[in-house]
Nucleic acid binder design. Structure first.
Lengths: 224, 224
DNA sequence: CGCTTCAGTTATAACCTCTAACCACAGTAT
DNA sequence: ATACTGTGGTTAGAGGTTATAACTGAAGCG
């Protein structure tokens, strides 16, 4: 690990990059990623515009860094939430709660990952790797959980049969087709509620999204 | 209806506005709404930049118009899909199919409504009115459908009790609390799958989203 | 101690939105 | 017919953006 202590130049460089990202985050949090302005960041840091290009090739590069940071943070919070519980059901509700809190704490951060993709850029392979790692948390829990009483003897659906042969996205995870199906469903249902909530489509509808969210969690865990 | 035949100036004005919107749509379809450029539109139309401001106060105004157009179009296709069937179950699956096809036909159009909200602007009240009208299609069908056999005697959930007293969003619709709950759930679950699909989060996962989508439709309609 | 590397600078190009001022014509009223 | 008014179009320009090029000064290193 000698590499950890780099030359002073390297350390300075890393420090400035972090400072830039910090300013970028506050800007993303307030106005969203599409309005992120390198010039404004430079002005806040007391340096002149083009200086930022020493640290990031271009605007998309910075955004990609933010996206990766968001993915890593989300992955960490999900893993931490799961690790704090022991029964699969408790783990999954904990992950679900953590996910929603994480999203509501910084809506634009959630939208940076799951919202409208920015025009030019393509998600780097590392991002999909982290996404897969988040999914593996769900797969672990559902694999341990086994089938709920409610569909003990339910015949396999079309989707489940399909997933039995299309499971590359799960890596070499040993989850059953039913587990794959439930993890996938868990993910999309949570996202359905959370994404509408952070995008503000519930405002004015005057009901409590938390209850809807809890109902969705419950639906996947117990029966459905 | 004499107002329908307006002065030639009015007619010309409307025609140019439509042409502008048409160009805007092609631009949105290719690069997304956040990259929409009034200047580029003007150039394509052979007129000079500021001329567009005779027809739209500013960029947000044009985007708002596109959003409203998308809402109206989506509402129309949903109503049409429902009207083509007679049993509630058939209507709902038809609406779900139409919704997904509508989204996949022009992903950016879907994201214009349900994706990351653009920085500055707030959805006009008319937009929420149309959104409510889409919801009413679902409410109608679920009200007619009644409870599926699978939860004939299932006790009311927290969410359902909550919705019994928080139903303003349904206007004065006569749907039961269970109907409200199912319509809401239908909406969020479909959105969960479709939004992830149009945002490209399934690409590379190598499974068929159509089957997942169908499973979600089935889950809300029969049992779950 | 000198050479090289690199952070930061200014200048500049090429975009963007949007306002101001002006021109010319179409439709209307006198 | 003629004068007036409203309106679509124009160019000029302010102020913003991303990004590149060329230069400067200093820090690090052999």
């Amino acid at each position: 690990m000698r590499e950890a202590v780099r030359s002073p130049r390297e350390r300075y460089r890393e420090q400035v990059r972090d400072e830039i990202k910090a300013h970028a985050w506050t800007q993303v949090a307030s106005t969203g990623a599409s309005a992120l302005s390198l010039n404004a960041i430079a002005k806040q840091m007391g340096i002149s515009g083009p200086a930022l290009y020493r640290y990031f090739r271009n605007r998309d590069d910075l955004i990609t860094e933010l996206v990766l940071g968001a993915y890593r943070d989300l992955s960490d919070t999900c893993r931490a939430a799961a690790a704090a519980e022991h029964t699969p059901a408790a783990q999954l509700t904990a992950v679900a709660d953590a996910l929603r809190r994480w999203a509501l704490a910084a809506p634009h951060r959630y939208l940076l990952i799951y919202g409208t993709p920015v025009p030019g850029y393509a998600a780097p392979p590392e991002a999909t790797a982290i996404a897969a790692s988040i999914m593996s948390v769900l797969l672990d829990a559902f694999a341990k959980a086994g089938a709920p009483a409610a569909h003990a003897r339910r015949p396999a659906t079309d989707l489940q049969r399909h997933l039995a042969t299309h499971r590359q996205w799960a890596g070499d995870h040993s989850a059953s087709p039913a587990g794959l199906r439930r993890a996938l469903t868990f993910w999309t249902r949570l996202h359905g509620v959370v994404s509408l909530e952070v995008a503000g489509h519930f405002t004015g509808m005057n009901f409590d999204p938390a209850l809807l969210y809890a109902a969705e969690v419950d639906a996947v865990l117990n029966g459905t």
